Amino acid sequence: METFAARGYNKASLAEIADQAGLTQAGVLHYFSSKANLLTSVLELRDESDIEQLGTERPRGLAFLHHLVGTARRNAEREGIVRLYAVLSAESVTADHPAQDYFRDRYAGLRAFVIEALSEACELGEVRDDVGDLDIENTANAIIAVMDGLQVQWLLAPEAVDMAAATDRVISALLADIAARRE
Results as ranks from 00 to 15, higher is better:
residue 68 L to N: 10
residue 153 Q to P: 06
residue 130 D to E: 13
residue 122 C to D: 10
residue 123 E to R: 15
residue 65 L to R: 13
residue 112 A to I: 02
residue 65 L to V: 06
residue 119 S to Y: 06
residue 55 G to F: 04
residue 78 R to S: 04
residue 146 V to P: 11
residue 79 E to V: 04
residue 84 L to G: 03
residue 168 D to W: 04
residue 60 R to E: 11
residue 82 V to S: 13
residue 87 V to E: 05
residue 144 I to F: 15
residue 122 C to I: 00
residue 142 A to Q: 14
residue 66 H to D: 10
residue 101 D to Q: 14
residue 64 F to C: 08
residue 101 D to G: 10
residue 166 A to Y: 14
residue 76 A to M: 15
residue 60 R to W: 00
residue 83 R to I: 00
residue 173 A to S: 13
residue 159 E to C: 08
residue 127 V to N: 08
residue 121 A to C: 03
residue 67 H to R: 10
residue 159 E to Y: 05
residue 111 R to E: 05
residue 121 A to S: 15
residue 85 Y to Q: 05
residue 134 L to E: 13
residue 92 S to R: 10
residue 105 D to E: 14
residue 162 D to E: 07
residue 51 I to M: 13
residue 136 I to T: 13
residue 171 I to N: 09
residue 70 G to E: 05
residue 74 R to L: 00
residue 143 I to L: 09
residue 94 T to I: 03
residue 109 G to S: 09
residue 118 L to G: 08
residue 112 A to M: 07
residue 70 G to M: 02
residue 103 F to V: 07
residue 57 E to R: 14
residue 72 A to H: 09
residue 59 P to S: 01
residue 77 E to S: 11
residue 138 N to G: 06
residue 152 V to R: 12
residue 62 L to Y: 15
residue 168 D to Y: 05
residue 119 S to N: 14
residue 131 V to M: 10
residue 115 I to A: 14
residue 177 D to M: 06
residue 173 A to W: 09
residue 164 A to I: 03
residue 166 A to S: 14
residue 108 A to C: 05
residue 108 A to L: 13
residue 63 A to K: 11
residue 70 G to Q: 04
residue 75 N to R: 09
residue 104 R to F: 01
residue 118 L to E: 07
residue 67 H to N: 07
residue 152 V to D: 06
residue 74 R to W: 02
residue 81 I to G: 08
residue 82 V to N: 03
residue 67 H to M: 00
residue 168 D to L: 04
residue 78 R to G: 01
residue 133 D to L: 03
residue 60 R to C: 04
residue 72 A to I: 01
residue 77 E to M: 02
residue 117 A to F: 01
residue 90 A to M: 12
residue 61 G to V: 00
residue 131 V to G: 03
residue 81 I to N: 10
residue 119 S to A: 11
residue 147 M to G: 08
residue 112 A to G: 11
residue 136 I to R: 14
residue 162 D to P: 15
residue 79 E to G: 09
residue 134 L to Y: 13
residue 145 A to C: 05
residue 144 I to T: 04
residue 70 G to H: 12
residue 147 M to K: 14
residue 100 Q to L: 06
residue 98 P to T: 05
residue 139 T to M: 03
residue 143 I to W: 12
residue 172 S to K: 14
residue 92 S to E: 01
residue 145 A to I: 03
residue 96 D to L: 06
residue 152 V to C: 06
residue 150 L to P: 07
residue 87 V to K: 10
residue 172 S to E: 15
residue 91 E to H: 04
residue 128 R to K: 09
residue 56 T to C: 05
residue 61 G to I: 00
residue 132 G to P: 03
residue 91 E to F: 00
residue 164 A to P: 00
residue 53 Q to Y: 12
residue 109 G to F: 01
residue 68 L to D: 01
residue 111 R to K: 12
residue 123 E to Y: 07
residue 80 G to W: 03
residue 61 G to F: 00
residue 73 R to W: 06
residue 137 E to F: 05
residue 104 R to Y: 04
residue 76 A to N: 10
residue 153 Q to C: 05
residue 100 Q to N: 13
residue 176 A to K: 13
residue 118 L to M: 06
residue 58 R to G: 01
residue 167 T to I: 02
residue 148 D to Y: 10
residue 154 W to T: 06
residue 75 N to W: 06
residue 80 G to N: 12
residue 168 D to G: 07
residue 66 H to N: 11
residue 158 P to W: 09
residue 52 E to C: 07
residue 67 H to D: 05
residue 132 G to M: 01
residue 124 L to R: 15
residue 90 A to E: 11
residue 87 V to M: 06
